[in-house]
Design a protein around this nucleic acid. Structure first.
Lengths: 218, 218
DNA sequence: CCACAGCTAATACTTTGGTAGTAGAGGCCA
DNA sequence: TGGCCTCTACTACCAAAGTATTAGCTGTGG
């Protein structure tokens, strides 16, 4: 293949210790060369646009700027670098979000060093690198998504309904909601009835629980 | 001081990369020697009882066996090793729990290597090592604790009340709860009234929200 | 201009929730 | 044994929630 030239890699990770570990590992692999390290998102983005590495290893959990944001910026910019997430989180949401945002791989930090190097070589060949667990995780996410599509799909609450749903989730009664919004209680009831129908629920208690567990997505 | 002999250290952490980083670091410090590595709690406990290191570096988030459990076992056993948590989490609860369980330090993995080494030397001198942020975190925890003592303090729901609270948080009506528990609706009402009083709430909606946000702690 | 969607409001009615007080059965502990 | 707690259950009453129907007022878009 194209193993004649070493892969040029940039690491974006706020953990110096982990960066040291990767460096040491790279020294043992002639086909892999670490040409830059950044310990924050913004710094990493700058470095990537300057060095144009073949591969970016990107941590998900960083202070200041989230890894997913960094990923989005890298992928929306002019860079042609491939980006592999290297993180401790194998939470479904993170995996799915990363891949949706165009990540070229998702590896967990608890991999064995030799496995990790192997995966990086696979990425160089154009493949998508996934830790073993992550594949399973993806499968579950797909299942969950399927279930969701059959059930809900209609999350088109009006502004007013959203507003009232929030008040419900704070334990307020129709009367109180009416007072704080300066409308009649009967009006609040109408909105409540509508939002219950739209969410496929039967009582405000279910609505409250739904609201707190699905916080941001409505 | 007693810097004539190198500190003998055991690392318990499931991240090989991080262990490599620490090793490399230790090679540069003549007064620190890593005599063992374990990538799981049980393995680590066995290793500590065998090697009797001066210091144990212990990760908090590990599969199989939680770092706090490992800490508890180490501290309850015959070992005289000092134990320092080395982790990514600076969540208040974790810090507080670790120190309560007898940890001799709490360091974050995003420390600079030189700082880390310095902290380890401090531990050797009998001091408690804390990452800068952690101290602030502790202060907040203490404040929160004070507030809690004045406000709640009475989380002594009976088994039945807990059970019913869970059903409420799943949106079930008193009637349904009664049927599934095979008791009268009037009895359910009694339990609901009691748990509302104990939690200082007014409606089942508030109770439902409280339950989902405080999930495990009741 | 008309149709449509969203917000408003009212009335009337049923169901559910929450409070208060009383009370019996069983377990636990001093 | 007597006191205390938990779980059970009832009655009666009032407040809150939810349903159904009707309807006026806006603004947007075909």
């Amino acid at each position: 293949m194209n193993a004649t030239v070493a892969q040029r890699i940039v690491i974006i990770d706020d953990h110096p210790l982990l960066r040291k570990g990767l460096q040491q590992l790279a020294e043992l692999s002639p086909d892999i060369e670490i040409i830059g390290e950044a310990d924050s998102g913004p710094e990493g983005i700058a470095m990537v646009s300057e060095l144009e590495p073949d591969l970016v290893l990107l941590d998900l959990n960083m202070p200041e700027m989230n890894g997913l944001e960094v990923l989005a910026q890298l992928k929306s910019g002019a860079s042609t670098s491939r980006v592999v997430m290297l993180t401790v989180s194998n939470a479904e949401e993170d995996v799915v979000a990363a891949l949706r945002s165009g990540a070229d791989g998702y590896l967990l930090k608890d991999m064995k060093p030799t496995q990790l190097m192997q995966k990086l070589r696979e990425v160089a060949e154009g493949r998508i690198a996934l830790s073993p667990n992550v594949a399973e995780c993806l499968a579950r996410a797909m299942q969950a998504e399927g279930a969701r599509d059959t059930a809900s799909s209609t999350l088109d609450l009006t502004e007013r309904e959203c507003e009232i749903l929030i008040h419900i989730s704070e334990g307020e009664s129709n009367k109180v909601i009416a007072r704080t919004l300066s409308i009649a209680e009967s009006t609040v009831k109408v909105h409540v009835k509508h939002l219950l129908k739209k969410l496929g629920l039967k009582t405000r208690v279910e609505a409250a629980v739904w609201a707190v567990t699905h916080k941001d997505q409505f």
